[in-house]
């Protein structure tokens, strides 16, 4: 964490905060485009590593998870296969989240 980036990010305030803008930039395709990241970098006066590093950190924003959706199944606490509707064979019990995993069955 950088206190300097905290200050820079704080200058924009809460209403148009960098994190939310990254999420908005990802809405169309599931991951922000390079152009969108460049634009945010310029707007918020932060380095490339900040916006690129942030976008690649999150499951929802990461390019390799593009198109996947995460929904909470909670009390079941086990992933259900999207194709068969049965408990997933690969991850039969506890899931870290409820990210859609590629079906291996």
């Amino acid at each position: 964490m950088s206190k300097n980036i905290s200050e820079l990010s704080g200058r924009k305030g809460l209403e148009r905060n960098l994190f939310e803008q990254l999420g908005i930039a990802a809405e169309e395709t599931g991951t922000p485009t390079i152009e969108a990241l460049e634009s945010l970098r310029e707007e918020f006066l932060v380095g490339k590593s900040t916006v690129y590093g942030t976008a690649s950190f999150y499951d929802f924003l990461r390019p390799e998870n593009q198109g996947k959706k995460g929904l909470c199944l909670q009390w079941k606490c086990m992933p259900i296969c999207r194709n068969t509707g049965q408990t997933c064979q690969k991850y039969p019990r506890i899931s870290t989240h409820t990210k859609s995993e590629k079906c291996v069955v």
Partner: peptide, 25 residues
């Protein structure tokens, strides 16, 4: 201000959460 998270368990830790809102890793 309502903010929607983007899928990272560590953001439940308070200081990571603050960095997240700031747009940092």
């Amino acid at each position: 201000k309502v903010i929607k998270a983007q899928g990272a368990y560590i953001c439940g830790e308070e200081t990571a959460l603050l960095s997240s809102i700031e747009g940092q890793r």
